[in-house]
Amino acid sequence: MVIEFVLDGRSKVNTYMQLVQQVRQALRVGLLESGDQLPKVRDVAQALAINPNTVLKAYRQLEMEGLAEGRPGVGTFVTGTLAGASLMHQAELRADLVGWLRRAQTAGLTADDIVALVDTTIRATLADDVIVVTHT
């Protein structure tokens, strides 16, 4: 099986939408790609103890979005992609980031410190170019 679905019991998001979002996310980060088979409806229904119609509904939604295709008697397969051109750079950037995080830890920053630093740096650096933050 390529991916495994999990449900967030505290989420207000519909069960079927949670499944749709997980597939979209997996496509975005490259965990799923065109040609992959999505888990069988029966397996998802049993593993999560949810109504099989909910799984079917999620798969139909993905078909409508052009991301998947049902092949009768076989299963549902990924046909589209959400990963942008940036995907190939992601692994490299991630490796850089991991290296940086290790250095930050060695320098004595806690996880909260790191988040705060990243947050303020993003705002300071990217805000000038792309993100417009308005304070009233």
Binding site: L7, V41, R42, Q46, L48, A49, P52, T54, V55
Partner: peptide, 30 residues
Amino acid sequence: LQALMGSVAETGTTVLLSSHLLSDLERVCD
């Protein structure tokens, strides 16, 4: 409920089940 949902998916059986456990029902029943 896992066993029940697995077999519903397999056989398409129609089910009517009574329960007080409303939080279970939300995921299981349509």
